[in-house]
Computed example of a mutant assay.
Amino acid sequence: MDDKINKYLAAKPENPPIRIMSYQYKGQTVYYESAPCCDQFTTLYDAKGNVLCSPDGGITGRGDGRCADFEKLRTNEQLVWQDPRK
Score class of each variant (00 low, 15 high):
33 E>Y: 07
49 G>K: 04
19 R>H: 12
52 L>D: 08
28 Q>I: 15
36 P>G: 14
65 G>Y: 02
65 G>W: 00
21 M>D: 12
60 T>F: 15
49 G>H: 09
42 T>M: 00
22 S>K: 06
65 G>F: 03
23 Y>Q: 05
48 K>H: 13
41 F>M: 12
22 S>I: 01
69 D>M: 02
61 G>M: 11
32 Y>E: 11
61 G>W: 09
68 A>C: 01
59 I>D: 15
51 V>S: 10
20 I>M: 15
55 P>Q: 06
54 S>H: 13
22 S>Q: 14
53 C>A: 11
52 L>M: 13
20 I>N: 05
41 F>A: 00
38 C>T: 10
69 D>S: 03
50 N>M: 00
33 E>S: 03
65 G>C: 04
19 R>W: 05
49 G>Y: 07
33 E>W: 03
50 N>Q: 13
29 T>R: 10
45 Y>R: 08
19 R>F: 05
60 T>P: 04
59 I>H: 13
38 C>H: 13
29 T>I: 12
59 I>V: 14
59 I>L: 15
45 Y>A: 07
30 V>T: 12
15 N>L: 12
66 R>I: 02
15 N>I: 11
46 D>V: 10
36 P>C: 06
34 S>E: 06
70 F>N: 06
67 C>N: 03
68 A>Q: 01
54 S>L: 03
59 I>S: 15
34 S>H: 05
26 K>Q: 14
49 G>W: 09
70 F>T: 09
64 D>W: 01
58 G>K: 04
52 L>P: 09
35 A>D: 14
62 R>I: 09
39 D>T: 12
68 A>R: 04
62 R>K: 15
42 T>A: 08
24 Q>H: 13
60 T>D: 10
